[in-house]
């Protein structure tokens, strides 16, 4: 009885597995992502990068707790241009992720799904996130 059940499950797995020579849709190599699609994968990538960036936050906060000397060490590191570049990238990633996150909340409310709105929102998001990044870097 048990043996029969195992065979049955095995057959079921075989039947459900997708044969490798069948086309999949939409295939990323032959399918041109619309603007919303590009922004969507960027949202995911910035999310992963920002998560890694949280480690830097912990390092900075611990350095401040460590006293004047460790704070000075961190600040002298921050003076190097590659670190500054990472900081600018981090700022843009943060603001972009925030802007597209707001759009996800609008989508969750069941609004903003028609094509014109999607493209308009995409441009608004990119514009606002660029403006906010410049604002952060220049004025804060």
């Amino acid at each position: 009885m048990n043996r029969l059940l195992i065979d049955h499950n095995h057959l079921l797995d075989k039947a459900m597995a997708v044969p490798s020579n069948r086309p999949t849709s939409p295939h990323l190599h032959s399918y041109k992502l619309p603007l919303t699609g590009i922004i969507s994968i960027t949202h995911r990538m910035t999310g992963v990068l920002l998560s890694i960036g949280l480690v830097c936050f912990v390092v900075i906060m611990s350095a401040i707790a460590g006293g004047q000397q460790s704070y000075d060490n961190i600040q002298s590191l921050a003076a190097f241009w590659p670190i500054k570049l990472i900081y600018w990238g981090f700022s843009y990633a943060l603001v972009f992720h925030l802007c597209h996150g707001v759009r996800h909340l609008i989508w969750d409310a069941g609004k903003g799904f028609d094509r014109e709105t999607m493209d308009r929102y995409a441009l608004i998001e990119m514009g606002i996130s660029l403006a906010m990044t410049i604002n952060i870097l220049l004025f804060i």
Partner: peptide, 23 residues
């Protein structure tokens, strides 16, 4: 996500201070 929208102001201020401000 909703909570993080206003709280981002404090992160940005903190990071900016950590780059420029004295101890």
């Amino acid at each position: 996500a909703v909570v993080l929208i206003p709280l981002s102001y404090w992160l940005i201020t903190f990071l900016s201070l950590s780059f420029h401000a004295p101890y």
